[in-house]
């Protein structure tokens, strides 16, 4: 039988660790967005050498499991670069999540930029804009609108993937649920509580996505 009172006691304990989960999500989202945009632009403009390196990077980070990447960064890299021994588990988790999701976001953004018709760039250039002005003022705002659904899926994946940070020793909501389950033997209640918390957060993100899309779609048929 489900122990409702345990669920009630556990929830506020888990909520205390919510800032860790949200902090990981927020910082990794910002970093992976910035890195992903840089990778996408490198690929769209096919910058020599950088384009090949970006392709290799994206292939590696999409082609290997996030857990392996996190272990490689936290346990593997300090062996090669001793200076990295000072890296905390929290920083390693942010680094791993950022690198991993930047590869996915780069592909989402590259597809969105390519989906903007080429005559939009030509029209911007024809009035005397520089390519960077055309990108900034005409192409990227339209690409941003097209990228929202794919990027939101990436954010949602990222949020859920922060649960893997517990394997490095970061105490976020998943780690705390695991600890509480082990000490109370209420495994079902503990993992149900953490599952509900992720579900709630993802639902909030999906709600936000709907509103962002509605706002960005203004003026588009």
């Amino acid at each position: 039988m489900l122990d409702w009172s345990y669920l009630g006691q556990l929830t506020p304990i888990l909520i205390k660790y919510l800032p860790v989960t949200l902090g990981l999500t927020l910082v990794a989202t910002v970093l992976s967005l910035a890195l992903g945009l840089a990778l996408a632009l490198i690929k769209v403009f096919k910058l020599p050498i950088a384009n090949q390196l970006a392709t290799l990077y994206i292939s590696f980070f999409r082609g290997t499991p996030l857990l392996v990447q996190l272990f490689l960064i936290y346990y593997g890299l300090p062996q090669i670069f001793p200076a990295m021994k000072a890296m905390t588990a929290y920083s390693a988790a942010i680094l791993g999540l950022s690198l991993h999701f930047s590869a996915y976001m780069a592909e989402s953004m590259r597809g969105a930029i390519k989906s903007v018709p080429s005559h939009q760039t030509e029209a911007a250039l024809s009035i005397g804009m520089t390519l960077s002005q055309a990108m900034r003022r005409i192409i990227l705002p339209q690409a941003g609108r097209a990228a929202v659904p794919a990027l939101m899926n990436n954010f949602i994946d990222l949020l859920k993937s922060t649960s893997l940070a517990f394997t490095l020793g970061v105490t976020e909501i998943m780690a705390k649920a695991q600890q509480e389950a082990s000490s109370s033997f209420n495994f079902f209640e503990s993992f149900l509580a953490v599952a509900l918390m992720y579900w709630l957060m993802v639902s909030a993100l999906s709600w936000g996505q709907h509103h962002i899309e509605k706002r960005l779609n203004r003026g588009f048929a």
Partner: peptide, 14 residues
């Protein structure tokens, strides 16, 4: 000035 066959107005601008 350049006038395009398919108008090419900036879709994100009024």
């Amino acid at each position: 000035g350049f006038v395009f066959q398919n108008y090419a107005l900036f879709a994100n601008k009024t």
